[in-house]
Amino acid sequence: MDALEFVLSGTISRLTGRGRGELSIKLHGPHIDCVLPEEAFAEAVLHIPPLGKTLTIRRTVKAPTTPEITPDTAEMRKILAYLEGHPEFALSRREITSYVLAEPGARSKEVQELLKLDRINALRLRFQKIARDAMAAGKTAGQARKAADDAFSRALSLSTTTPTVILSAVNSQRAALGLGQLQEICADTAVNAGVGIVGGQPTMPVNKAVAENDLRALRDAMDARASHEFSAARNEALTKLRRLEADASLLNAVIRDDFLKVALDLFDGEHCPACDIPHTPEALVDHCRKACKAR
């Protein structure tokens, strides 16, 4: 049994693992007649029915991990690797007794290790983690997609987001901007293609917040101009302007009054802003009054 296990897997179970003490394959694997490790070997000839071929395996105790196989092909190496990974056929009576007498929890773990189920369990835990991470990522992506759909629907005032409805709404907006029509909406379609290009040159981006405030102010101004109060004030202003046009003297008085206001605003406290003659503020006011009376 030891020879069969060694030639197929490169190890001897009863000389490895817990409780083996000072035992080792190198020192205790060779037969009593083959003390030197390089002289101690095991050889097996295997027949492989599915392939209809024969495989010869030879291992020495000195190099248990590098067997000699005939024929040495990739196909035969693959078969040997499979055999090395499944040593569960070799159990001594002592090992069987150990499994029987082990505690339930420890026995389960040891049997899993024997049948290589511990690796399967590790893979299962990894796959479970991958599945949980994928579900979390999928949930996050779904929420992001729903938020994007809602924002897109609000931007285009859509109740449904079918391709036909989206294409019609996008082309309507593009027509308002003087852009060409799109023929279809795909996953990689840029609905804003051409925006920001005038005469083949890029334009400066528009601050949407400022533009929105300007549009709101424009709407308020247009609403105010359409109100009854604005119309009444406008008619009153027109009536007063017609009176000024009809009375030349009154119009001249208004012009003089405006002239005097501008002159006083430009007066530096020392010189007349019109003739640059030195004047005190009182003298300038008196001079203006005399000039008005002379007219």
Results as ranks from 00 to 15, higher is better:
A3P: 04
E5H: 11
F6E: 04
F6N: 02
T11R: 05
E22I: 06
L27A: 06
H28C: 03
G29D: 01
G29W: 00
H31C: 11
D33Y: 03
P37G: 12
F41E: 09
E43L: 12
E43W: 02
A44E: 01
V45H: 12
H47R: 11
P50Q: 12
P50N: 10
I57L: 12
I57S: 08
R58L: 08
T60N: 01
A63H: 15
A63V: 07
T66W: 00
P67S: 09
I69D: 11
T70A: 09
T70E: 11
P71W: 09
A74K: 05
E75Y: 05
E75R: 04
K78Q: 10
L80P: 12
Y82N: 11
Y82Q: 08
L83K: 03
E84M: 07
H86N: 13
P87W: 02
P87A: 04
S92V: 11
T97A: 08
V100A: 03
A102I: 14
G105I: 13
V111F: 15
Q112D: 07
L114A: 00
L115F: 04
L117T: 03
L123E: 03
R124T: 12
R124N: 06
Q128D: 13
A131M: 13
A131G: 06
A137C: 09
A137P: 04
T140D: 13
T140K: 04
A141C: 01
G142A: 07
R145Y: 00
A148I: 07
A151Y: 01
F152D: 00
A155Y: 04
L158P: 06
T162R: 01
T162W: 00
T162V: 03
T164D: 13
I166G: 05
L167H: 08
S168Y: 06
S168C: 09
A169Y: 01
V170E: 00
R174D: 04
L177K: 08
L179D: 00
G180C: 04
Q183H: 11
E184Q: 10
C186P: 06
D188R: 13
T189C: 05
A193W: 06
G194Y: 15
G194P: 08
V198Y: 04
G199N: 14
G200T: 15
Q201Y: 07
P202M: 15
P205W: 09
P205I: 10
V206F: 03
L218Y: 08
M222D: 07
A224W: 10
S227C: 07
S231I: 14
A232P: 00
A232M: 08
L238D: 10
K240V: 11
K240A: 05
L241A: 06
L244N: 06
A246M: 09
D247Q: 08
D247W: 03
A248W: 07
L250I: 15
L250K: 08
L251E: 06
R256F: 10
R256N: 11
K261M: 02
V262C: 04
L266H: 05
F267G: 01
F267R: 03
A274H: 11
P278A: 09
P278S: 15
H287V: 01
H287G: 12
C288E: 15
A294S: 10
A294Y: 13
